[in-house]
Design a protein around this nucleic acid. Structure first.
Lengths: 154, 154
DNA sequence: CCCAATTAGACAGAACGTCTGTCGATATAT
DNA sequence: ATATATCGACAGACGTTCTGTCTAATTGGG
């Protein structure tokens, strides 16, 4: 029997990215639950990642997260039900709704950033902190260039 | 007004990985559709990634893809309906079902690998081919170490 | 050889996150 | 002042995953 058991010789870039991302995501949300934030799910990160300190509108958040207003409204509602954000009418625009992080929401956001950094350090222990720093820098550069592309195409 | 408009100063590792992965995924599946395989969706990659040339069982595929047998069976059924795989009873085990790539399925798998390589090259044009090669090597090392961890924990 | 335990998959039901399409209310610009 | 655009709400759908339960088939220990 030949040792041709590996389905794909060269792993795809997408597969490699996905494995790293999924591992990081799983760890972050598991520890977030242990830390007292069990009702925050991965999808909520599009809100936490994009909200401003003074509050943001749903459509503003949807724009930045590159998703529909409906989807973002669904996330905002579920986070409001769990007490992470408050929803108030925007005084400057009668149509709009302001999403604002509550005290608990701020703590959760801080915990997410802290846990993400911890997992980055753990990855660094596996491949070396210097190599991990290089990896981050490359991903940042890639993200910047891809973002620039997206801007210019609009 | 302060320029404190960026919600998070330091982008999280997960966010960076997700952006790269999502961009690669979107491009691969858009071009796959243009190349004549419009009914292949991202979820199907867990099957294409893990299937052996001689065919594989559903539970074998589910194991390797780290998902439930039900989920993999659903993917296999939908790919069978679109003609990418055939489902035959396994002659060596009356309970089992063999999933095998059809001619069309093989072509699709090749196209996916080819497109993935093309997008990797495009990313390399953005950040430099050498830096891209380093990035891949780091991700491969990380994947290997994470895989080793997972093995030892079972 | 038989019975118990395991394994392969099927089926039903649910949850989650996303989408489209339509709608009323409010702002904005000509 | 009216036409157009925007904000969010509502209803409905789809894709992907999960749990839980079930039958059929296989395997191993006594």
């Amino acid at each position: 029997m030949e040792p041709t058991n590996i389905p794909l010789q060269r792993r795809t870039l997408g597969g490699l990215l996905r494995l790293a991302e999924e591992t990081a995501r799983t760890r972050v949300y598991a520890r977030l639950a242990e830390a007292g934030f069990p009702d925050i799910r991965p999808a909520h990160s599009s809100l936490f990642r994009n909200i401003f300190a003074g509050g943001s509108r749903v459509s503003e958040l949807a724009d930045r997260a590159q998703m529909t207003k409906q989807s973002m409204a669904y996330l905002a509602d579920s986070l409001a039900a769990a007490g992470y954000v408050t929803l108030e009418p925007d005084p400057t625009d009668g149509r709009a709704k302001l999403v604002r992080l509550s005290e608990k929401g701020l703590l959760a956001q801080e915990a997410m950033v802290r846990l993400s950094a911890a997992i980055e350090r753990e990855f660094g222990e596996l491949i070396g902190q210097k190599e991990m720093a290089d990896l981050r820098r490359s991903l940042e550069r890639l993200a910047d260039r891809l973002g620039a592309l997206r801007q210019s195409q609009i």
